[in-house]
Design a protein around this nucleic acid. Structure first.
Length: 589
RNA sequence: CGGGGCGUAGCUCAGCUUGGUAGAGCGUUGCGUUUGGGACGCAAAAGUCGCAGGUUCGAAUCCUGUCGCCCCGACCA
C-alpha cells in the first residue's frame, strides 16, 4: 500500500473538542472522524487496527474452541421483555412501519439465549462457546473521551453455555486466560480487577483494566499481593479496635464518653461546613444519608470523610431500586431540612452504619432539626444502628482485602474487557433448558464475555505515545513499517522503496510506502504522528547502497543498513519490538 | 438530569464588553523558487457568524428561545 492511495488525513493542530491523548491523536493522525457525540467513523488506519485486534481475538477464540457467529442488531421488544430489559435506560428503541417495537442491540444475552433454548436440547450439546464481533448501541448519558465511551461501538462479545457450575467455572477461566493472552500479545499492560456486574449479573465477574489517568474507573490495587478491584465493589475490612483512639473525639481530647450536647450550626449543611464551624475535621463527623430502597427509607451512616458505596448498600438491602431521597422526603423522615439528618432520635428508617463507626467515640451528627448538630454522640448510648456493614468506598491506604498486612493504592483505569458468570439469570428467565443423562430437565449455566475494540485501541494509545504522536505495538499497528522516500522525484529512490515494500509484504509484514510529493520533513512528522513501529528512510544513503532504519519508540535506534539486508533487519527489529515492552508501556504498567 | 464552557472560513482562534455590514495563522488552489524534521514569495478561492424569533435605521455583537458540542458530576451491561 502507498500513502498516496490510503486516506490518512492528518491534522497539524489539535482539534478543540479533544482533551485526552488518545482522542487528540486519533483525530490528528487521521484515524477517526466524529459524526455526532459518541458517534465516529473509523478511517482506514483505525479500521486496520481494529482488524488486527480482531484477528488476534479470533486466533485465541479458535484455540479455545469458540465459534464465530453474527447476531442481529434489531431486537424485538417481546424478546427483551422476557428478561425485563426492554426498559433499561440505555436502550435505543424504534418502531417499524407496522408499529412493532425494536431495540438496537446493546448486548446480546437474549438473542444468544434464544438460540440456546431452541438448539441446545441435550447435555451432549454442552458445553458450547460462541462469539461475535458487532456494533452495539447504547444511549449513554454522557459519551466522552473520543473512543473511550461512545454511543455506537464495536464490541467483541462471547457467551458460554454449560451444564453445571463446574462447567461454567471452567469456561469462565478459559476466557480469562484467552483474554490475558490477547492483551499480552498486543503489548497492552492490564490488571484483572474484581468488579460489579451491574445489570448484567451479580455473580463472579472481572474487569480487564488498562491503568491510565484518562480512565473512567477507579481501581484499588495491592502491589504486594496483586489484588485489584474496582472501587464499586472493593471490600473494606472492619477496622481493628486497636485503631480506635485514632478515630475519636468530637472536639475534645478526653478518652471517656462525654455527655451528648446539641450545638447551633446555622446554615452548615455540608460536612466541610459543619467541620469548619465546629473547628474539627470531617473524620470526626458522621454523615447520615437517607435513601429510598424500593420505596422504603433507609439511613446510611458513614464517617464524614468517607463515601457511601451504593453498590454495596444495594446488595446489602437486596433491593432493585436505590436512590438518595429528595429534600421533601428527607424532611418528612428526619423532621429537618437536608443537611441536618442524624441517627439520634431518628424513628422509622432502618439504620445501617459503616464499620468505621464501631470505633468512633464522641462524634458529631445532624440533630434532625434545622441549624443544629449533636456533638459527643456515641453508638449504643445515643442510638443503636440496625446493623453494622461494609458501606463505604475503599480508599488508598486501606488494608488489602486479601491480606491486611498490605495497603491498597488507587489508580484510574480503562475497562477494556469484562468477563461475567451469569449462572441461570437469562436461561431461567427464558426457559433455556437441556435434558441431562438422567432425563432430567436442567437449566443452562451461562457466562458472557466482552471486549470493546475501539476502546482497546484508544487504551493502547493512552499508554503508548509521546509528544510527536502514537507509538504502536507491532501486533496492532495499522502498518508495521513505513518506508519514507525522502525525495519523491528520485526514480531510484522510489524504485528501491517499492522493492523493499514488496519484499516485506512477501514476508507477511505490513508495509506502507510514503511516495507523496511532500518535503521529507512532512513525511517524518506524519510517520511519527501515526506511529508506525518501524520507519525506513530511502534517502541520501541510497547512493552508497544504504537505507536508514529506526524504531518509532527510540530515536537513538536509527542505523544504516545495506539495501540487501534491510528486509532481514526490519524483520528482526519487529520481533524485538514485539517481545520487549517499550519504556512508556513499562512505565505505565 | 445538575454545574461550567463553547458554537465566526476545512482546522486553531480573534472580533462581541462599547451595534455600523467579517479578520488572522495554518490548510486549500495556481505560478515560481525550494527539497532529510510540518519551506518561501506572489496571486486566489473560501464564512446564511449554529438555528429561530425579538429590539434597532442598522445585529456576529444586545434580548428571548432552541439545537449542537466539550468538560465536571449524577448515571453507566
Amino acid at each position: 500500500m502507498k500513502v498516496s492511495d490510503c486516506f490518512i488525513p492528518t491534522l497539524r493542530e489539535v482539534p478543540a473538542e479533544a482533551e485526552i491523548p488518545s482522542h487528540q491523536l486519533l483525530l490528528r493522525a487521521g484515524f477517526i472522524r466524529k459524526l455526532g457525540a459518541g458517534i465516529y467513523t473509523y478511517l482506514p488506519l483505525a479500521w486496520r487496527v481494529i482488524g488486527k485486534i480482531e484477528a488476534l481475538l479470533k486466533d485465541e477464540m479458535d484455540s479455545i474452541g469458540c465459534g464465530e457467529i453474527r447476531m442481529p442488531t434489531l431486537h424485538p421488544q417481546e424478546l427483551l421483555e422476557e428478561t425485563n430489559r426492554w426498559d433499561v435506560d440505555v436502550v435505543y428503541k424504534l418502531k417499524d412501519r407496522r408499529e412493532a417495537s425494536f431495540a438496537l442491540g446493546f448486548t446480546h444475552e437474549e438473542v444468544i439465549t434464544d438460540i440456546a433454548r431452541r438448539d441446545f436440547r441435550s447435555w451432549r450439546d454442552l458445553p458450547r462457546l460462541l462469539y461475535q464481533v458487532q456494533t452495539k448501541f447504547r444511549d449513554e448519558p454522557r459519551p466522552r473521551g473520543g473512543l473511550i465511551r461512545t454511543r455506537e461501538f464495536i464490541m467483541y462479545d462471547a457467551y458460554s453455555f454449560d451444564r453445571d457450575d463446574a462447567g461454567m467455572e471452567l469456561s469462565f477461566q478459559k476466557f480469562k486466560t484467552a483474554y490475558s493472552r490477547v492483551f499480552n500479545r498486543m503489548g497492552l499492560p492490564f490488571v484483572i480487577a474484581e468488579a460489579d456486574g451491574g445489570a448484567i449479573g451479580d455473580l463472579d465477574n472481572n474487569e480487564f483494566v488498562v491503568l491510565s489517568p484518562s480512565g473512567e474507573d477507579t481501581i484499588l490495587i495491592c502491589r504486594e499481593t496483586g489484588y485489584a478491584a474496582n472501587v464499586e465493589c472493593c471490600p473494606v475490612l472492619p477496622p481493628d479496635p486497636a485503631d480506635a483512639p485514632i478515630a475519636t473525639n468530637g472536639n475534645g481530647n478526653g478518652n471517656g464518653d462525654k455527655p451528648l450536647e446539641i450545638v447551633s450550626t446555622p446554615g452548615a449543611r455540608t460536612i466541610d461546613e459543619v467541620a469548619g464551624m465546629l473547628g474539627t475535621a470531617p473524620m470526626h463527623l458522621v454523615k447520615t444519608l437517607i435513601y429510598l430502597a424500593d420505596g422504603a427509607p433507609v439511613a446510611a451512616l458513614v464517617r464524614g470523610d468517607h463515601e457511601v458505596n451504593e453498590v454495596k448498600l444495594r446488595r446489602l438491602l437486596n433491593v432493585a431500586e436505590l436512590f438518595l431521597a429528595d429534600d421533601t422526603t428527607v424532611e418528612r423522615i428526619t423532621g429537618a431540612p437536608t443537611g441536618f439528618a442524624g441517627p439520634v432520635g431518628l424513628i422509622g428508617p432502618r439504620v445501617i452504619a459503616d464499620h468505621a463507626l464501631s470505633v468512633m467515640r464522641n462524634f458529631i451528627t445532624g440533630a434532625n432539626q434545622a441549624d443544629a448538630h449533636y456533638v459527643h454522640v456515641n453508638v449504643g448510648r445515643d442510638f443503636a444502628p440496625t446493623e453494622f456493614a461494609d458501606l463505604r468506598n475503599a480508599l488508598p491506604g486501606d488494608p488489602s482485602p486479601d491480606d491486611s498486612r498490605y495497603l491498597l493504592t488507587e489508580a484510574r483505569g480503562i475497562e477494556v474487557g469484562h468477563v461475567f458468570k451469569l449462572g441461570t439469570k437469562y436461561s431461567a428467565a427464558m426457559n433455556a433448558t437441556f435434558t441431562d443423562e438422567n432425563s432430567h430437565l436442567q437449566t443452562i449455566q451461562m457466562g458472557s464475555y466482552g471486549i470493546g475494540l475501539g476502546r482497546t485501541m484508544a487504551a493502547a494509545i493512552e499508554i503508548s505515545h509521546d509528544g510527536n504522536g502514537i507509538i504502536w505495538h507491532p501486533a496492532i499497528a495499522p502498518f508495521q513499517v513505513v518506508i519514507v522516500v525522502a525525495d519523491w522525484r528520485d526514480p531510484a529512490g522510489l524504485e528501491s522503496g517499492q522493492a523493499l515494500h514488496d519484499a516485506l509484504e512477501i514476508r507477511g509484514i505490513d508495509a506502507l510506502l510514503d511516495d507523496r510529493d511532500e518535503r521529507a520533513g512532512v513525511k517524518f512528522k506524519d510517520a511519527d504522528l501515526v506511529g508506525y513501529p518501524v520507519r525506513v528512510v530511502v534517502g541520501k544513503g541510497l547512493a552508497n547502497g544504504f537505507l536508514e532504519i529506526r524504531a518509532r519508540r527510540d530515536a537513538a535506534s536509527s542505523r544504516e543498513v545495506p539495501v540487501l539486508e534491510a528486509a532481514d533487519a526490519i524483520a528482526a527489529l519487529l520481533i524485538e519490538l514485539r517481545d520487549g515492552p517499550s519504556e512508556q508501556q513499562a512505565a505505565a504498567a
